[in-house]
Design a binder for these strands. Structure first.
Lengths: 157, 157
RNA sequence: CGACACCGGAUUUU
DNA sequence: AAAATCCGGTGTCG
């Protein structure tokens, strides 16, 4: 069981900062609190990246339940994905699917796991409703969003 | 120049009590300290009601500057109101606008005043920052919240 | 039209 | 430190 969450202060505005949070448990060394990579700093990319990180951190043989409050992310990798593959990653409106890179990466891992017979479950939790695990993931995501951007060229100036 | 404020001890909890404060000046007979009417006892209704009271107490011909710490109230009657009228009092999210009764009542008075060429200004003050007038209005609001509910049927038991 | 987030702002309170 | 009252905006999809 893992909780994932994304944060994005200033979402939709110039200068937004994405943060990724993954919470396996108290003091679990696999917990993640990191800054979102890349130039597109949006809430959706942060949420998807958190799910991707969770999958990268568990063994292919270990069943997992990922709990997220992002219905969008769940739908991307469980419902909408199939028709996107058929239609060449085009939206119902004909426009290119956004965040396709992340969706594909998550699907790859899910299918690797499925090929091994390993269970992967995505569960929806209501955000900010006193769910302890979700709150912890949120905390980690907010913290991660405050870290410096990753695409800096200089190393410590 | 009038200061208005609302109070609502227990805001959001069952049994919350709304109080309305309007301060024209020291010992001014128009000063108001009253219990919020109706079943919805929230901070926002208290703030809006205080503004409504202020407008009801000044002559249509008298210019007025109302000072409140409620950015919400100011935005309701100066910014958001126009789009709400257009969209049938629906929120940006499609839900019905809350406290529409109070917003409409205030707008009615403002437009009556405007039709007469009378100036009405809403000014934002920072709450609890040593602003004397705001503190006085706050005092009156807190006092008002302690009065018995208005929808009691018996008159003084 | 629907859904879930992400955010920004101001207050009211405990 | 944490909850409730209220709003608008973007991110994304069917």
């Amino acid at each position: 069981m893992v909780y994932t969450d994304g944060a994005a202060p200033g979402n939709g505005k110039a200068g937004a900062c994405g943060g990724v949070g993954v919470w396996f448990g108290a003091d679990d060394p696999r917990n993640v609190s990191e800054r979102l990579a890349g130039p597109l700093q949006t809430n959706q990319r942060a949420e998807l990246t958190a799910i991707l990180r969770a999958l990268q951190l568990v063994n292919l043989d270990s069943p997992i339940e990922i709990r997220t409050d992002s219905q969008y992310s769940i739908d991307c990798v469980t419902k909408w994905y199939a028709s996107w593959v058929k239609k060449g990653w085009k939206t119902a409106g004909g426009t290119p699917v956004k965040n396709a890179d992340l969706v594909k990466a998550i699907r790859d891992l899910m299918e690797n796991r499925e090929a091994k017979g390993t269970i992967t479950i995505l569960t929806k939790v209501v955000g900010h409703s006193g769910d302890y695990g979700n709150d912890q993931a949120d905390r980690l995501a907010v913290l991660g969003a405050q870290l410096p951007a990753l695409d800096e060229k200089g190393l410590g100036e």
